[in-house]
Every structure is written in structure tokens, then in C-alpha cells.
Design a protein around this nucleic acid. Sequence first.
DNA 1: TTCCAGGTGGCAT
DNA 2: ATGCCACATGGA
Length: 306
Amino acid sequence: MKKEFDLKMMENKKSTVQIENLESFNLKQILECGQCFRWNKQEDCGSYGGVVTFFVDGKFISTFVQAKQEGEKLSLLSSKEIIKSKWENYFDLKTDYKTIKKNLGKNDLKIKEAIKAGEGIRILNQDKWETLVSFIISQNNNIPRIKGCIEALCQKFGEPLGHFAGTNRYGFPSPQILANLNVEDLGICKLGYRAPYIIEASKQILDMGLEEYYRIDELPEEEAFQKLTSLKGVGPKVAHCLLLFAFQKRKSFPIDVWIKKVMKDVYGLEEKKEIETFAKEKFGENGGIAQQYLFYYIRELERKGE
DNA sequence: TTCCAGGTGGCAT
DNA sequence: ATGCCACATGGA
């Protein structure tokens, strides 16, 4: 029958990847620690569905992917063919988190406590363009609403990928598309005052050249930071999130309201300057990873506490 | 009603 | 260089 044939075609288009011997890996913690916005827990419970963007040879590839962890095994079922090494890089599997955790906790009992709460966190290596727009949206905003805004943006302006796991899925809109919108076009996405920032930043990226933007991680960190903060809607906090989550600068220590809170509660530090100095001296090269443990820790505490 | 959320731009000192 | 403050939106 025709229907079966279509289904079969769909099956053929999917690709599966299995990754074994996971270490310091908790899918739930990784996807729910606030670093990414396009993953959601599936109805079947236990598995997660998301749309992931890869930038390959100057082009964007978006794939719907269903992920499930069983013990030390991760299964990935994606709508497009993505080779295993891409997923290994996305989930940062080449990094030795066990050693990093040991070193961070060496002379600090407090961070040890935070690490215990999120011991399976890994920093994803996310697409630089998608992360830029996502974190511009994140400013003075909360995570559920950020996710809603991004989803609306993709539904309205992203490439349709097909119907998977009960929902129509869409890729992340390209800089070309967003640069040519006006504020009214974006009204449906409820971005508020951030809408013009996104349009302006998109134009800046096109002016700079996508390839050059993607090469920012090759610059010395201070220069990279300057270049990112020159983009509209990107201040120090968003720039640090970009460096950490997309440009693989694990030293980068974003300071938001949650980090301010946890640094005050745990270490008694209130001023941003103090926090920065402390993070540099205490956590060093892996400040950003420590930051994620702290971020997750304080949010878990607040969630349970009330 | 007021406060808050992965802050920043613009303006006045 | 630093210190305010307005800025949409929706949930608590």
C-alpha cells in the first residue's frame, strides 16, 4: 500500500547511532541544565527529542533527533544522516570530565557539593549561529519563555523538516532570512524589545561574513570577546555564553542572576568583579564547566526548596 | 499589583 | 570608565 511505502521511505531516511561506554554522562542533566533550548522530554518518557543544527562546508544542516540513554549507552535516531563523530563532538565526548571534576574539587569542598548535584553534565558544542540568536533572546528572560520564543521563530521562519514524534519540526532560520525581516514580521514570536537586536545582529553577521564569524574561536580570547560584544544585543554575559557553549572556550564564566545568587550564597561574593577574579583563580581553565555545575546546583536547590 | 527571568543599549556623569 | 534605567512578555 501507498501508506506503508511512505513509511518505509521515512524509515530509510533515518539514521541511528549508538554510543557506548559513556562516562560522566547524564542526558537529562545535559539537556535540562539551561545550555540548550530546543530539546524536550518525549511523551514516552525517558527519551528526548530535539532539533540540532550543524554548520558543514558553509551550509546549515538541521536534523530532528531522538535521544535515549540507557546506563552507559546512548541511542540517537535522527531524520538526517549524521555521522557518529559529529554526535561525539556535539556531546563533548572527547573531554575527560572525570579528571576535570576531580581537579575542580581538589581544594574546594563547596564546588564538590555542586558537582555532586550535576555530576553527569557536559557542555554541548552547539552551533554558533543558533546559539547567538538564542542567547540574545535569553536576556532578562526565563528559560520556558526563551524556548517558546525560539520555537516560534523556527516554526515561522525555519525550514520544515517533516513530522516526527507527533509534531512538525523546523530548522533554525538562517541569517539571510532573519536579516531581511522587520520588527512586525517577528511580532508573532513575542521577542519583545529583543526583536530589533536580532535583525541588526543578523545583518552584522552577514556583513562580517558567516565564515569569519565561525572562525572567531581561532582568535585570542580577549579579541573573540570584543568581536562578539560588538554585535547588537550581545553584552558580556551573552558573549561569555557564546564562548562557552558554541566557541569551546571552557574558561569562560558567564555571570547571570543565578550565578550571582549562588556565588553569594556559597562563597559570600556579591560584586561581579570579585566573582570574575575568584572564578579565574579558583576554577582556571575549566571555569565554564564549574559555572554549569553551580548553575544547575542552585536551580535544583531552589526547585526542591519551594 | 508587583516581582522576576541565563542583560543590554543609551544616556548622563 | 561607571551608574542608572527603560526595555516586552508572561508566569508566580
